[in-house]
Design a protein around this nucleic acid. Sequence first.
DNA 1: CTGAAAGCGCTTACAG
DNA 2: CTGAAAGCGCTTACAG
Lengths: 335, 335
Amino acid sequence: MAVRLKDVAEMAGVSVKTVSNVINGYPHVSATTRARVEAAVEALGYRPNLQARSLRTGRSGVIALGVPRLDEVYFAEVAAHVIDAAGALGLTVLVEQTDGERERELEVLSGIRPGMVDGVILSPLGLSRTDVDETTRGVPVVLLGERVSGSAVDHLRIDNVEAARQLTRSLLTSGRRRVAVVGVPTGSHASAARLRLDGYQRAHGDLDVAWDDELWMSVAGYRRADGAEAVHRLVGTGKPFDAIFCFNDLLALGALAVLRRHSVRVPEDVAVAGFDDIDECSYSVPTLTSVSPDKGELALRAVHTLQARMDGAGDVPDPEVPFAVVQRESTASSR
Amino acid sequence: MAVRLKDVAEMAGVSVKTVSNVINGYPHVSATTRARVEAAVEALGYRPNLQARSLRTGRSGVIALGVPRLDEVYFAEVAAHVIDAAGALGLTVLVEQTDGERERELEVLSGIRPGMVDGVILSPLGLSRTDVDETTRGVPVVLLGERVSGSAVDHLRIDNVEAARQLTRSLLTSGRRRVAVVGVPTGSHASAARLRLDGYQRAHGDLDVAWDDELWMSVAGYRRADGAEAVHRLVGTGKPFDAIFCFNDLLALGALAVLRRHSVRVPEDVAVAGFDDIDECSYSVPTLTSVSPDKGELALRAVHTLQARMDGAGDVPDPEVPFAVVQRESTASSR
DNA sequence: CTGAAAGCGCTTACAG
DNA sequence: CTGAAAGCGCTTACAG
């Protein structure tokens, strides 16, 4: 059915080896032969079967990317960058959704579609400490986010403690004194949230301000509805607060909606800040202050680290990705 | 390095054929043999090389999805649904970004990674009438969005004319009389926008209201910034308007931001409506009226249609996907 | 500079 | 119920 190397060879009157040489750009082919082969390739519309090539070479040129869900904007933005960066290296990306479930993350980790995938980039949520070391056999893996284990597996992350500390400090120095938190870790696996809470506490320590942990709200997930629900609960406690630090932007956007419904003015009555700096932060009402990880850099390093490991290199890019705290309307000074 | 079928066969003391039979669940294997084989598989941690299987069977279990960009929320939502639907059928999805460029859409169409992909789902923007017919050879293709050519290629869409007509009619019947449009087609390829404009005109005809095409704003893209820019221009004309129909939600969200900056009240002074019903419509300020295509259904039918074509079936699902006009705060009656 | 042959790891008629 | 062998479409030492 499809055109094969053999067909091209027959038409050009050469061996398959020679066609292969031309296709793969080997230098030692006479100009005449090369021209004949290229003409045959053109005439037949030949395209090499990458599956077969890959079986032979042991390289597919495909990597897998595992994220909780693509319709969570942050992950869509990261995925877009990863696909771009991979494409620049001639790699194609297979995207898998895990819903943050351990089972499915393990599935991705152990090289979903064995034999077809050269490497894996995974943004894990449910993985436990030992999972990674036990499952990673064969394909190279790069983890996005906090280190899951003390293992040798590459992981890329921003300094969550420092980011949360800087953001919290800016809230405190602008006069806020009762900073609520939405998204505190509940289970044992929410390592990023734990670190952010740590940063929050350190900022309070830095400025000698006491915090009130009754203002810390847990969430069932990290989407708008969860943020809305948490702030609803927060308001319900009757406790006063003059700022909310949400551990991601969607939570913050959900929070804004509920505050508005309660006629709480942002930032006059309550400052609100998020994390991730998704596109929407620049367009929400009010625009949203957020921690902005350099997603382009994150994706680039993830792909390059993976590539380096696939090449068996020991040298990989710096695992710590830069971030910035972007101040917007939602935390403008109340004075 | 990796464990092969042969290794399992040796350990179990049977032929590779028998191991293959066990793995593929063929019925005629004695219980003893099966148990021995399964034990060996377990002991060695054997996982079949899907690349090799695929080379032999001609089926990879991988499909490609081509979208303009993943960080455009609508496409991320569609992609999330496609991956879910594909997963339910045991298919994995390779995601490619085209930026809406013709060249790259053709690349996807002609079966990016030949031999590794069983079928293609593409949401085209730049493809011309004849492109599709000429390029589609080999792998089955399902197009998302308006029919690009009169070709036999499957395409799934909503009734854009009727959707725009219903939405426009609701604006007119609620008393709006000067309905601006943001996102009118400029080039020759913007078929969906053209149909939406058609629906807009029909609604005016239905109710015998004249439209003013000086209120029709073109855009360079379909993102927030483009909507903001267009409304900026619209305001600049000095022409009065009491509603804006944006041809997607991001344009509408950009529009809201600019109107707010100009202290134009929505919906009191101007009603605003979008298209696609992305998640954010339910959380923006004000919440945004939009045409809501059934994305789950769209993705499901896309995958099932593709599967049917890959199986060589002639029967495919209905290409017309249902939609609903969801009324929210942004178009509440001004009376 | 080019060819004949082996082999990547599977599946599948074909025998027995 | 199980085995020996061919072949999917490539690449790659090995000769010449």
